[in-house]
Amino acid sequence: MSVRSKVIEAIQQIAKEQHVTLPALSDDLSLHETGFDSLAFAILVARLEDDTGVDPFTISEDAAFPATVGDFVRAYENVPA
């Protein structure tokens, strides 16, 4: 499974658990518009760390939290293996 599909699947799973109705997930959708609160993002980052072995937001001191879904996915895609 590609990193992108792992991320999208995790977002959809958490949306289901948190009873969040997601809009269509396009790359330029702002994370704010996903309807996720900070707890939902915290869950997402923790699960993806377990799944992929990386937490791009803790590794990098100066990483700004991404603004859009596309930025978020790229944060995982761009982690050096």
Partner: peptide
């Protein structure tokens, strides 16, 4: 608890 870059901590 587990550290979280978003909320400081989450429950696992």
């Amino acid at each position: 608890s587990r550290k979280s870059p978003i909320t400081g901590g989450i429950v696992v």
